[in-house]
């Protein structure tokens, strides 16, 4: 019981020490920081030592060496390579031949490059393109979250986004589409009428247009990332629409995480008030 109590007091002391940083830097924080750095570095090395070096390297390699002496080849003998590369890394401590440490480094970088190339090709590029191949217009029952009321309001939103985007592409600051203004206006008016008709139509017979927004977002987003063309003209307009989508993404993800970040702090305050001070039951 007594040691538990000491543990709680130490934990509370360190908790408040870190929190005091919010007011300003101070010796209490410095102390907590110093102990955190020291402890965690020790913690990581000890865990790595047992869980990587001992469990993954030594436990596989040493039996393999023993069996080699008995004249048998064991696949695990390949771990020798890892050991040698590790030791090469340490040669950095001997400056004249320190450059040898570049060899394990190139193994690491080469391996990382190879693995990431494949992984991102498969899971990011190919799969994301695949899931974007969707109908841009569907009948609403095929989408789960949306129900009749949502479809209509959703479509009004879709048309609003379309009109604003088009207006921006035609008249925006960065755009220099070489058309006389009346022609631009004419296009815009036609689009406006089309969207109004679409909205009206969607009231009577709901079509789900969310696919169109996703398509536009991905398309314009990719245009934003294009390096080989200046962001002017049609390209500039589309890229700007792309940044809007990125901004919605950032805003939404930000807003979405606020709640769970608050809960992290609730956990600490709960510790202080309930476990330590016991002022709340």
């Amino acid at each position: 019981m007594g040691s538990d109590l000491i543990g709680v007091w130490i934990a509370a002391f360190l908790t408040l020490g870190i929190m005091s940083f919010l007011y300003k830097d101070n010796p209490w924080y410095k102390f907590s920081e110093a102990i955190f750095v020291g402890l965690s570095a020790g913690y990581w090395f000890a865990s790595l030592f047992w869980q990587s070096l001992h469990a993954k390297f030594w436990a596989n390699w040493s039996p393999a060496v023993q069996s080699l002496f008995q004249g048998q080849f064991d696949y695990n003998l390949l771990y020798t390579g890892a050991g040698i590369l590790g030791l090469m890394m340490l040669l950095r401590l001997i400056p004249p031949i320190g450059w040898i440490s570049r060899w394990p480094l190139s193994v690491v970088v080469g391996g990382t490059a190879g693995l990431y190339l494949i992984n991102y090709l498969v899971s990011n590029a190919v799969r994301q393109i695949g899931s974007t191949i969707q109908p841009v217009v569907t009948f609403p029952e095929s989408i789960g979250w949306i129900n009749s009321g949502g479809v209509i309001i959703g479509n009004v939103l879709v048309f609003a986004v379309l009109i604003v985007s088009l207006g921006f592409i035609l008249f925006g600051r960065n755009t220099t589409i070489d058309l006389p203004t009346p022609t631009k206006l004419f296009f815009f008016l036609i689009a406006l009428v089309a969207c109004a008709l679409g909205t009206f139509y969607s009231l009577s017979m709901p079509l789900n247009l969310t696919g169109l927004i996703i398509f536009m977002g991905v398309f314009c987003g990719l245009i934003y990332f294009f390096f080989s063309k200046e962001h002017t003209g049609f390209f500039g307009g589309a890229a700007t629409v792309g940044t809007w989508f990125l901004m919605v993404t950032f805003g939404a993800s930000f807003g979405y995480t606020v709640m769970s970040r608050m809960s992290l702090l609730i956990g600490r305050i709960d510790f202080l008030l309930v476990e330590w001070l016991k002022v709340v039951n």
Partner: peptide, 10 residues
């Protein structure tokens, strides 16, 4: 340190 938040503290 390898520890995420220890590093941030420092």
């Amino acid at each position: 340190t390898d520890e995420q938040f220890g590093y941030v503290a420092a």
